[in-house]
Every structure is written in C-alpha cells, then in structure tokens.
Amino acid sequence: MKRISSNENYLLIGHILAMVFGLAGIILVLPNPDFLVILSQFEWGTKIFGWSMAGGGVVYMLLATAAVSLYAYRTLGLWHWLSFMLPAIGLSLGSELLGTSTGFPFGEYRYLSGLGYKIAGLVPFTIPLSWFYLGFSAYIIALAGLNRLEVKNWLCQLGAIFCGSLCLTSWDFVLDPAMSQAPIPFWVWEQPGAFFGMPYQNFAGWMGTGIIFMTVATLLWKIKPLTLPTKDLKLPLAIYLANFVFATVLSLAAGFYIPVLLGLVLGVFPLIILYWIASNKNVAFVKNLATTS
C-alpha cells in the first residue's frame, strides 16, 4: 500500500506539472506571436508546443484519473472505487452525448479538438474522466466531513450528494467561460448565454448530472461496509484545488472575475471547511460547532 501511496503522489505531481505546462501554452504562447516566432527557431520548441496543444489536456486528465483511482482503491477498496467510477463515467458520458446531440441538459454546444479521441465523434473520452476524478474528490470530502458531525446517516448522504455536486458545478463556473473562449477554444457554445457566454441551463445540467451519478454511487456503496478515510483526504483536496487554480488562472487571464468569486464561495470554501471537519482530531469541538451553528 505504501508503494500505491507513493505512486499517487507521483501521478499528482505529474498532473499539476501538465496543467502548468498547458497554462503556459494557453496564456503566454498563444496570445503572444513573439513567443511563437522564438519557438519556431528551435525544432524542439515547435515540437513541444505542438505536443502541448494536441495532447496536453489529455495527459493531465489521464494522470488525475490514475491518481484518484489508486487513491480510491487504496483507501476504500475495489468495490467502492469501481461503484463510484463506473456510474460517474457512464452517466456523465450519457449526459454529454445527449447534450452535444440535442442541447439537453447543458445547452447547445460542441467540442473541438485538443481533448483526445471523440466518442461517437461528439465527446472527447477524457471528459467523463474529469467528471469522475473531480466528482469523487468533492464527494468523498463532503461525505467524510458530514459523517464526522455524526448527523443521521440518510441526511449525511443527502448532504454529501448535494455538496459534492455543488462543488463540482462550482468548478465549472470558473472553467467553462475560459476554456470556451481561450485563444484556441476547446469547446464552443452554439447559442451563447448570459453568464459570460454560457447559458444558465449549463449549470442545472452539471448539478443534475452530478446528483444522479453520486446518488447511484451512494446506493451502491450501501452494499458493502464503508470505512471513510477521514485522516487521508489530502490527495482529493489537492486534486480539486489544483484544478480550481488551473481554471482560475485561465478565467482571470480572460478578465472573468465573478465566476472565480462564485467558485470560491460555493466550491472551495465549503470543501475546505468539510476537509477540516473530517480531519480534525478534536471530535468534541467539531460536534459542538455543528450544534451551535
């Protein structure tokens, strides 16, 4: 298990470095022709930039998926890992295929190149993976935090589904405007909406999809006993925060400040509080906090 834990950390580091590399390409190179001229003078520069634009997004999502998968297997076991991952990937893929075909539940949009092979020519295979690793990271922290408060089991589970889905959606508040309006966009809205180019329907679709697959996973988790990793939540928190920072840098570079603020208030702050509650050793203090708030 120690080897698995070490591999998780290596994958996490690789995930973060791949995102930093991608940010450099999107923010520094693409908007500045001078950078492209300089890079074109070096064969390695052209190759690296071409690789980054063609496969950088694929790499960082694959690394995060591997890191979260190893973490879930190590801390929860095979059943609880797969019974979350498979519904998350399957149901989010179904939503994305439906959305890119009909406009429901997210609105009218389509994916461009840059995120890997497209399933049915519509949805990059990496997109359902991101639903899994971000959704799992938010859900497991929410569940562990609420469980630490010792609220009724059904209320804890409902709260985790809602909080996990909200944190997942809050990440999209920040990511979607920037990625769809980057110098080289990764997807486009056929019918732009009022929220920085996105329709409000998009967020309802994100929230609804998250609630559905987290509910399915919650029901499947009831089949076998579950021991929550309350003292071992650093990796899911790091995954969530790293991806939020990635989206934040892109949004701020595009001049989108309100989405970042919303994401902080509705996603980052609640998740950090739940993480703190889950990992706090002073159980009596935590319970007191719950009853007085």
Score class of each variant (00 low, 15 high):
A253M: 03
E108T: 03
S130L: 08
V123T: 10
G90I: 00
I13F: 10
N288F: 01
A242M: 13
A66M: 11
M19S: 04
Y200E: 15
A138F: 02
F195G: 10
L175G: 01
I223E: 00
W206F: 09
G90R: 05
I48N: 12
E96M: 05
F285P: 07
V216E: 03
Y109L: 08
A253L: 02
L70R: 01
L30V: 08
L175C: 00
L112N: 04
A160N: 06
A178F: 08
V37L: 13
L36Q: 12
R148G: 07
Y200D: 15
A242P: 12
E108R: 02
G197F: 06
V188M: 14
N153K: 15
F195W: 12
P185G: 06
V188P: 03
P183Y: 04
I26S: 08
S52R: 08
S165P: 03
L274V: 13
H15W: 11
L271C: 02
L271V: 09
D232H: 04
T100S: 14
V68C: 08
G135C: 02
C163P: 09
G103E: 05
L237T: 09
L91K: 00
H80N: 02
Y109A: 00
Y60E: 08
V37Q: 08
F173T: 03
G205Y: 10
G114K: 07
G193M: 10
V123R: 06
F125T: 03
Y109R: 05
L233W: 09
P270M: 00
A247I: 11
Y73P: 03
D176W: 00
K2M: 14
Q181K: 00
L134T: 10
F162G: 15
A194G: 05
N243W: 14
M207T: 14
F42Y: 15
F213Y: 10
W206D: 12
S279K: 10
L129M: 12
A182V: 01
F195I: 04
G25C: 12
